[in-house]
């Protein structure tokens, strides 16, 4: 049955209406969880606020486990969903660059939009930075065009690459995430004792 749009159950004319509705839900959840403040987000790297880890990993395991159940009951055709293509080296480099950008800027693109929405100047500046970053990338593209498409593994899943069944992958992520939730609770308590200027 699902996915609905690729299977033609919802006509693609509704695409953009659905996009706005889903986007609104996304923005609302991000802002309501406190992602419109860069200091909340970056807290995950210094141990004083693990809201990113909690929201991100809870979302990840809920979505993973949910997809498996939908697949099992036959409501979703897993072969029809989009699998992000893997370009190994460019993705590692890109992730490293994003990681540095994350620490310096304190946002990621999605959260910076919500920061703009509630009037954070740092969010606006970060978004402008994103714009220039992508512009620089496009202009300089001929310099590293070959690198950009190197390490192409195609649209592979974790199961294709490692042979671990999807349900074990979900299980692994769930166990690690739950352990992290309990562990970080204690880390956060200890770190927060020493901080005075930050309002939680």
């Amino acid at each position: 049955m699902c996915p609905l749009i690729p299977n033609g159950i919802i006509s693609s004319g509704w695409d953009f209406v659905i996009a706005i509705i889903l986007g609104m839900a996304f923005g609302f959840i991000l802002e309501a969880s406190g992602f419109s403040s860069a200091r909340n987000i970056v807290g995950v790297f210094y141990g004083y606020n693990f809201v990113v880890l909690r929201v991100f990993f809870t979302a990840l395991i809920v979505a993973m486990v949910g997809l498996l159940y939908f697949d099992y009951f036959g409501w979703l055709d897993l072969s029809k969903i989009f699998i992000l293509p893997t370009y190994l080296t460019p993705m590692i480099i890109g992730g490293v660059v994003m990681g540095v950008g994350f620490i310096m800027g304190g946002f990621c693109p999605g959260t910076s939009f919500t920061a703009v929405a509630i009037g954070k100047i740092d969010g606006i500046v970060f978004t402008i930075g994103l714009y220039f970053g992508i512009f620089i990338f496009s202009e300089a593209f001929p310099l590293f065009g070959d690198f950009y498409t190197s390490g192409d593994l195609g649209n592979v899943t974790i199961t294709d690459a490692t042979g671990i069944p999807a349900s074990w992958v979900a299980m692994g992520f769930t166990v690690v995430a739950l352990a992290a939730f309990w562990g970080t609770m204690f880390v956060e308590k200890r770190v927060r004792k020493n901080m005075t200027e930050y309002k939680f």
């Binding site: 395991i61 486990v65 498996l68 159940y69 697949d71 099992y72 069944p165 999807a166 349900s167 074990w168 979900a170 299980m171 769930t174 166990v175 739950l178 939730f181 309990w182």
Partner: peptide
Amino acid sequence: NYIYLTILMLVLAIGTLLVNNE
């Protein structure tokens, strides 16, 4: 409540192992 939620999530994840094995 967190303990209950942790157990619930674990049970759900283990459930996928049972149903999706074949």
